[in-house]
């Protein structure tokens, strides 16, 4: 824990002192890992209280090749999300995503994405990816790098479809694809 704290501090220091590019270069996934938790702040999971019993922990699932390495575990071993302990799961099957609140879809799932998404799209699972074009295809949040800055795109329609309640502040901040119109 001390270690992770130290690490966080270092990150922050770097973030401040080091130019974005450098920090982006070095810590792209670290930032992305931290961002996962930050997303959760803007998202309400329906029936989360009901599911409390079934899902005591906040479960982060990773599908596909894990780009984070051990970063997630490192970051979330102590950190809580929504007052719950964070549990990192590496999903083999898409169906496992049901027990997850958040599912990171790695670039390796580029091809089985549609299938995967068809499963999760109407479920309150926050899907996050960092592959170009995934958002347009139906991933709720997709990281992209903008001049060495970690940014993300949100598929508003997908969010609506998922039943998750996403705070507009996050939407405002993100690049929106497939926005919901006529509301």
């Amino acid at each position: 824990m001390l270690n992770s704290l130290k690490k966080n501090t270092i990150i922050l220091l770097i973030m401040i002192c080091v130019p974005n590019s450098a920090y982006a270069d070095l810590l792209e996934y670290e930032i992305k890992a931290v961002f996962l938790e930050r997303f959760t702040r803007f998202v309400e999971w329906p029936h989360m209280n009901q599911a409390e019993n079934s899902l005591k922990n906040f479960v982060i699932g990773v599908i596909g090749e894990n780009p984070y390495g051990g970063l997630l575990e490192e970051i979330y071993s102590e950190k809580k999300i929504k007052d719950r302990k964070v549990e990192i799961r590496y999903l083999e099957d898409v169906k496992e995503s049901l027990s997850c609140h958040l599912v990171f879809i790695s670039a390796s799932k580029k091809h089985g994405l549609a299938q995967l998404l068809s499963f999760t799209e109407d479920k309150p699972i926050l899907t996050v990816s960092d592959t170009k074009g995934f958002a347009e295809r139906g991933v709720l949040i997709n990281f992209f790098m903008d001049k060495r800055r970690v940014r993300f795109t949100i598929n508003e329609s997908a969010v609506r479809k998922s039943g998750l309640i996403m705070n507009y502040r996050l939407l405002e901040f993100a690049k929106i694809v497939k926005p919901v119109h006529g509301e």
Binding site: M15, N20, F35, R38, R41, F42, R149, R151, Y168, R169, L170, E172, F173, A174
Partner: peptide
């Protein structure tokens, strides 16, 4: 301020500046 929540959350100065 609402718009600035996110940049702050994401510690995105550029985003904040944009906002």
């Amino acid at each position: 301020g609402d718009y600035l929540v996110s940049p702050l959350v994401f510690e995105d100065k550029d985003g904040a500046e944009e906002m």
